[in-house]
Design a protein around this nucleic acid. Sequence first.
DNA 1: CCGAAGATATACCGATCGGTTTACTTTGTC
DNA 2: GACAAAGTAAACCGATCGGTATATCTTCGG
Lengths: 192, 192
Amino acid sequence: MPALSKRDMIVSVALKLFYRNGFNATGFERIIKEAGVSKKTLYNHFRSKDELVLATLRKRDELFRNNIMRETERLSSAPRERLLAIFDAHHQWFQEKEFSGCMFINASAEFSSHDDPCHMISAEHKRLVRDYICGQAEQAGVKDPDTLAKQLNLLLEGAIVDAHVSGNKDSALMAKAMADVFVEKALSQRIA
Amino acid sequence: MPALSKRDMIVSVALKLFYRNGFNATGFERIIKEAGVSKKTLYNHFRSKDELVLATLRKRDELFRNNIMRETERLSSAPRERLLAIFDAHHQWFQEKEFSGCMFINASAEFSSHDDPCHMISAEHKRLVRDYICGQAEQAGVKDPDTLAKQLNLLLEGAIVDAHVSGNKDSALMAKAMADVFVEKALSQRIA
DNA sequence: CCGAAGATATACCGATCGGTTTACTTTGTC
DNA sequence: GACAAAGTAAACCGATCGGTATATCTTCGG
């Protein structure tokens, strides 16, 4: 029994290459070479490139959200701090050498039609992240957790873009400071 | 004398196709066909695809910033309102049928290396937009125009991503409401 | 020990990629 | 009217694209 199944190996390599070099720019020859797998095997597990891309994005969603949640909860204890710790978790992410922006924003750039399955799964990922923030906002006891979640989410998106496009590695810290204003506002509404 | 020179025609068509379908996904055959131009002519004006992409991005930067500035100034008069009118101008943009996110965020997704000329011109574009905001902030007389410009810029980036990836057409309005908080704060600092 | 499952490498497919070349036609200028 | 510049269509280049087929080898359960 291998540490990673053939399928997982393929997805793992595809994840790295798609994230680093883009989807259209990454060919199958490169993937099977780095995964140490034959073309037949790849097509045995995935009917087409689209299917591989989708499987890759699903895996990325799983890994990313698990990571953000774990780090967020490791960095904080109280619900209020947790809302801000999400920004610290992003800050850590931006410092990674392999950081190339948000894979789902990148996917939406290459598959721009809203009907495209890759675009749809990207929108779904963003919804799930926002839902997580909303859950934290609820735990913090704010009056309108949905609005706060949308606000913090928008700040996160802005920070990601600023970090990737402009190379501003501290964007998450600025976003965090901005987020604090809205967290404070939302919490004061609860008291009122 | 044609309304558009051959070169302008090529750039115009490339702009549309690159924006709509992405850079790597758009081939030369398609561009010359829609531009009604021979391949020789294209290579007469541009040495390579990279050069065409760069020329396209430069044109986009020019058109986009002119448009945002014009609309912003059309929608507002006083400096303070102008800072917020930038969000209204973006809101208009998001409602366009052909809206496919920010072309420079999209370019950074496909050309992820920070050394890549396409990525560098994208970073430059973002810097120029931020500079415009900073200029407006100065005119409004805020104490620290640079900080406010960075904050408003981050909100704009977030709104663009939210509009494109998640299809939230009202993201600019939410961002505007958030921006108002920081504009107010910056202006009160001036008075203090 | 044998046979099916699943892996492998490799050749192949038509299409398209970015890019070049050739030969012909239009166009504007002196 | 001649001539150079710039345009055209189309063939062509090697490489790579996503995807298929073939033939061989490994693995492993009955």
